[in-house]
Every structure is written in structure tokens, then in C-alpha cells.
């Protein structure tokens, strides 16, 4: 492992962490809203947020590129008012990963909230608790395992993101290259040794995240079936 490899791994992990933490509050709010409320346009929102899961990542990347680019609505606004450019920089990577990880998290978080007995929340209300307190003291802690499992899954997804990242951030070694982009590069350059080293790292990271996620899921079911 070279210093460049370690930098690369560090950048990828930090970007995936930042991205999944960035989308966490929005994901929690939306998942709760989908699980617990009926509202007009719910089906539309459900469809929209599932889109990045089924669209080719490159296509999602292209949309993000348009939106975040200097001539796009968000990118243009940031450029004009804050002289801030996002596309083809390292700082855009967490945003891209947040978008790509969002649907995965929302889906598992929604299930985690739906599994909660709504009577517990209802009883908390009869005891005088407002909605925020009910969420903080009942829904969130009781769904915690499911939420953590969902977040880890989203994190694992973010670690391996390729298509959208390369569209929006490019592949600039030392600045925007992530683990999966580097593996692709190494294979293209015939550097099999590096490709397999990085492959090993990817597998280890993914195994760790998915393993813990599964373990949390299992514990959740066991604690549910206990008397």
C-alpha cells in the first residue's frame, strides 16, 4: 500500500461518511413522513426517490451535472453568489454520494418506522408528549437498529459508487478519484497488483458494513420475537 493508496481510501471513506451523514436528517424525516402519514402526492414522491436506485448511475450523474454545473440552477446560483464551483471538485463527491445513497436509506428507514407499533406513539401522546418528543423518545430509539442497518447499507453503497461520481466529479487523481474509479484506472493501465490490492480493500469495507447491517437486522428480529 502506498501513501497515495491510503489517501485514496481515506478520501473515499470520508466522502461516503459525509455524504450519508448529509442525507441522514432528510432521509429520516422523509422515511417517517412516508411511514406515518397519508398525504397527497405521496406516490409521486415515492417514485421520484426510488429513481436513483433504478436509473443507470451515469444517467443520474448527468442530471446532477446539469443541476450542479455552472449553467445549472444550483451550480449557477452558488457560482454567482458565493463564487463556489462544485463540479469536477472533491467537495462535490459527498453530494453525489448523498443523492445515490438516499433512496436506499429511505426505503430501509421507512420499513423500520412501519414496523413500530403505532400504539406506542399514540399512548405517548395521551401522556402529553408532542410530536417531536414522541419522535425523539419513542419512534427513533425503537427504530434505531433498523435505521442503523439502513444507514450502513447506504454507506456501503456510497463507498462503491462509480457512474454518478465520474460524471459529476470526473476522475482527477488525488482530488476526485474514489476507490472504484481507482480500480478502473488500475485495470485500464494494466496495473493488476494495485487493482487487486484496492479490490481487497473494497471487499473488506463492504463486508464490514453489510455484515454489521445484517447483524443489526437479526438482533432486531430476535428482540421482537422475545416475549
Amino acid at each position: 500500500m502506498t501513501a497515495a493508496d491510503w489517501n485514496l481510501i481515506g478520501f473515499t471513506v470520508v466522502a461516503a461518511l459525509a455524504g450519508t451523514l448529509l442525507m441522514l436528517p432528510f432521509g429520516l424525516a422523509l422515511a417517517w413522513w412516508l411511514a406515518r402519514r397519508e398525504w397527497r402526492g405521496k406516490v409521486l414522491v415515492e417514485t421520484l426517490i426510488t429513481l436513483p436506485l433504478v436509473l443507470p448511475p451515469v444517467a443520474t450523474g448527468l442530471i446532477l451535472l446539469r443541476v450542479l454545473g455552472r449553467r445549472g440552477p444550483v451550480g449557477g446560483f452558488l457560482h454567482r453568489h458565493f463564487d463556489l464551483d462544485l463540479v469536477f471538485t472533491g467537495r462535490v463527491v459527498p453530494f453525489v454520494l448523498a443523492v445515490m445513497a438516499f433512496p436506499l436509506f429511505v426505503r430501509s428507514a421507512r420499513v423500520a418506522f412501519e414496523e413500530l407499533d403505532p400504539r406506542l406513539e399514540a399512548i405517548a401522546r395521551t401522556l402529553g408528549a408532542g410530536e417531536w418528543r414522541v419522535f425523539r423518545t419513542i419512534s427513533l430509539p425503537l427504530a434505531a437498529r433498523g435505521l442503523a442497518a439502513g444507514w450502513l447499507l447506504a454507506f456501503a453503497r456510497a463507498l462503491g459508487e462509480f457512474g454518478a461520481t465520474i460524471m459529476v466529479a470526473g476522475n482527477i487523481p488525488g482530488r476526485t478519484t474514489t476507490l472504484s474509479l481507482a480500480i478502473y484506472d488500475a485495470v485500464q493501465l494494466g496495473d493488476d497488483g494495485r487493482a487487486f490490492r484496492l479490490l481487497g480493500v473494497s471487499v473488506a469495507l463492504a463486508l464490514g458494513a453489510v455484515g454489521v447491517s445484517e447483524w443489526l437486522g437479526r438482533r432486531r428480529h430476535r428482540s421482537r420475537s422475545a416475549p
Binding site: A122, I123, T126, L127, G128
Partner: peptide
């Protein structure tokens, strides 16, 4: 009036104790 402002205690049949 929302449940939290009614000041009415409710013990449901399944009790709904907070398990955590």
C-alpha cells in the same frame, strides 16, 4: 382537541408499555 392536550389517561388492552 389533540390527544396530548386532553388530559385523559388511557390503558389499552395490550398495555403498550415502552419496551426500551
Amino acid at each position: 382537541v389533540p390527544a396530548r392536550l386532553r388530559g385523559i389517561g388511557y390503558v389499552p388492552q395490550d398495555l403498550a408499555l415502552f419496551p426500551h
